[in-house]
Every structure is written in structure tokens, then in C-alpha cells.
Simulated assay, not measured.
Amino acid sequence: MITTRALTKRYGSIVAVNAVDLQVAEGDRYGFLGPNGSGKTTLVRMLLGLVYPTSGEITVLGEKIPSRAARVLPQVGSLIEGPAAYPYLSGRRNLALMDAAGSRDSRKARRARIEEVLEQVGLAGLDARPVKAYSLGMRQRLGIAGALLRKPRLLILDEPTNGLDPQGIHEMRDLLIALNQAGTTVFLSSHLLSEIEQLCTRVGIVDRGNLVLEDDLTALRAPTGRVVVESPDSDKIAELLNGQLSDRAGDQLFIKHTDAAELNAWLVGEGLRISSITAERLSLEQVVLAATGPGADRIDGDAS
């Protein structure tokens, strides 16, 4: 669905995106991560033909970008750097203007499609208020509704949950999963690592313009070789497994072991009580922090 080869964008002496080879397969829910100023938005804008690369190649839906953008973009839904709308028009009127551009469908079919996408994003009860009176969360929902108007094969979203409350974030996650299961490939950038962890199947991490990591999320969150045990008998377990105990936090023990079920059976067989036991896995936050350097927006001074 998306492939880049040595994709590079320079602004004078500044390299915003540096020789990035990106691979997004059909059916992916792809999370694109990185610190502020790492080049995420620049790369996303290049995928849509909004910014031209300095060098390298981009293929979206099997077509070259930007030369074949007019052929590709009707099949792509996008929301980049916040939703755009005419502030003095209502949400429905904004969607009607967006949907009318290049559409050969009847007015009735277009109205039905608008109502469908408003229902999908939780705005079915929208009144005639102008967009300028909407909350940030309502504007974000409207922007995503606009991205869904053409029933896209590919969704490219930049911070799609921006401005949404916790319930709204949960609803948006469910919507994107449902769209993906119905055949839409989803590519999104977000700062909310917990959302990427719950939503995405594949992850790419960019730092200072470089793609530093790209893999399936399950592979990135591989077991660490430790088992986390919580028990009211933690002191006895710590004494019994002293040579295998690598860390402790109260009644929670971190034990060097590769099989949680085997360890659980052995401890129970020794008459010890187990509240919980699980194989430790890296969190996405740990993966990102290990793959990236200090934030690009830091300005550190001399300590002297």
C-alpha cells in the first residue's frame, strides 16, 4: 500500500527526512512514531503529494507519488495537521462541499453518504451550528468523517484522537479497527503510545529524520526472559529463588525464567500462593525510548 525508497527531504542545510525506506502492507494498522521534530509530518505530507521530496521514491497503492497523485488520492482518506473546514458553515455543509468535488453521484446518494460517515464518527445528531462553534473534539470527528467520505482503501491520519476525551478515544479506536477489518489499511501517526499499542499491528519509529525501527508490534514487544510474580508469599519466593531473582518491588518479583506456566506450577507445588504471574514483555514506550535519542525540541545548556 505504501512503499518509500531512500526518501529524503531537505530544507537548505536541514535534513527533515533522511533516506527512509518505509513498507506498509495491505491490511496493516501501522503506527508511525517519533519525537517532536523527527520528520513524521513531513514524511506524511510527502505521501500525499503535499510536499515534494528532494530525492527518493514514493509508491502509494501501486502508483508513483507525486506524479500519479490525481489517480491515487481519490482512494485515500486523510487528516493531516488538524481538520480543515469553512468556519461559518455547518458540518454537514462542509462535508457536502467536500463530497461534491469530482463526484458523479446523485445528490440523494451524497446526502446518504454524509449521514453514514457522521454516524460512524459519533456526529449523527449534528445541528446547524457553524463549525467555528464546535469543540476541538467535534472538529476532529468532523475531519475524520471527511476522510471517510469516499470509502477509502487507505486511511492516512495524523494524531486522529487529538482533542477527544477518553470515551472518544475509545470510540475512535473501535472505529479504526472495524474499518481495518472491513478492508481499509490504516496508517497513523500519534504521540499516544498506549493507543498505538492497543490499535496497531505494525510500527515504524523515526528519529531525527531517520527510520530507526520498523517491525510487527508483537515482535517488538518480545518477552524479556523474566517472569513477573506477585504473591503474598513474596519473601519466601525471594529466598527460594535467590539466584534467579533479578529485581523486586514490594510483593512483585522479577524472576529470570522463560516459562511462566512452568514456574507457576513449581511454586504452587511448593505450597506458595500466587496472586498473578506473567511473562514480562517490553512496553512500546520502552521500545521507543531505546530506539530514539533525546527530544529534538530540547535546548540543553552548559551546567557550569
Rank of each mutant, 00 (worst) to 15 (best):
T201V: 06
V17E: 04
T54Y: 06
R129T: 01
K9G: 04
L79P: 00
G163I: 06
V60A: 09
T8M: 13
L48A: 11
G56A: 11
K108L: 12
T161K: 01
V203E: 08
L123N: 01
V131L: 08
G125A: 13
R141I: 13
E116N: 04
Q181T: 08
Q167D: 14
N36S: 11
V288E: 00
A178S: 15
L199W: 04
L164P: 00
E26I: 09
I58S: 04
G49S: 10
K64Y: 15
L211M: 14
D21F: 02
S67E: 15
I299G: 04
G62W: 12
L148Y: 06
G143K: 05
G49Y: 10
R71D: 11
L97R: 10
A133L: 13
K236H: 01
L289Q: 12
Y30C: 03
L126M: 15
G209V: 01
P53S: 13
P35S: 10
D207T: 07
L175K: 08
V229E: 00
T161S: 14
L61I: 14
A19C: 10
S231L: 07
Q167A: 15
G91M: 00
A69I: 15
A265C: 06
P66N: 02
C200L: 09
T201E: 06
L154P: 03
K9R: 13
P152M: 01
G31A: 02
G204D: 05
T224G: 07
G91L: 02
V44H: 02
R29G: 02
Q181H: 15
Q252C: 09
E280H: 09
A222N: 13
Q75K: 15
K236W: 01
N180L: 01
L97A: 11
G77C: 11
K151L: 02
S234V: 05
V227P: 00
L149S: 13
L89N: 06
T278L: 13
D174M: 12
L22S: 07
P130C: 08
R202A: 04
L282T: 04
L272R: 07
T278E: 15
S190E: 10
R298W: 10
S276T: 09
G269A: 04
